[in-house]
Design a protein around this nucleic acid. Structure first.
Lengths: 107, 107
DNA sequence: CAGAATCCTCAAAGATACTG
DNA sequence: CAGTATCTTTGAGGATTCTG
């Protein structure tokens, strides 16, 4: 699926962070506990490439790079909402299924 | 996300295959071109563990194992539909963004 | 500050062979 | 038929260093 590349762990968190407004590289990083600079760069690149976020270089000194959600990125709100709704509604069932499965095979 | 484990490449295709009715292991396999038996086993196990598919051993000779979608699995229809709708609606934009990005950096 | 480059490790993917 | 077991290979991810 196309959404795989947008809905992986870090990308979702990045979009959530950018949801309230633009942030600079290290500002995003500070909000995402545990992400490495490499992983953040990669995720941002892919989001940018797919048109989900916009990258804007502020050529002041010191240099700054600002990331923000694009209109296309905002259009993801509905899918995300539906997915979250499904999760909230069915998570107990899933956990119960997992417990039952693990039980069957002596966990 | 929880959906990651359900909405990866093979799982989606497996669910699509099972959508119209139960199938045996090798029947699923034949529908999924290129999947290895190991990957299929793993995907089916995880789907089963999460309660998305049901596994039923038919103890005839030769042995048969039938997989089918559970009610919980069917409840995924709406999220999938919304995701597909988003993809259909916005894929051109994404592709355009990708082309522009790749252009910018000499592809 | 924002990121590219490098090295390393370890886990997942693939191929092959075997079995109840 | 429906897997499990084993071995190998590949590559994603982390840590570190360097730079415009």
């Amino acid at each position: 699926m196309l959404l795989d590349q947008i809905a992986d762990k870090w990308s979702v968190l990045i979009l959530a962070a950018l949801c309230d407004g633009p942030l600079r590289f290290n500002a995003v990083r500070r909000r995402l506990d545990g992400i490495t600079q490499k992983a953040l760069t990669q995720a941002l690149r892919r989001l940018e490439r797919n048109g989900i976020v916009e990258r804007r270089v502020v050529t002041d000194a010191p240099i700054a790079v600002e990331y923000s959600i694009s209109p296309l990125g905002r259009s993801l709100e509905e899918p995300f909402r539906v997915i979250n709704a499904w999760t909230h509604r069915h998570l107990p069932e899933v956990e119960q299924a997992r417990a039952a499965f693990d039980e069957r095979r002596g966990a």
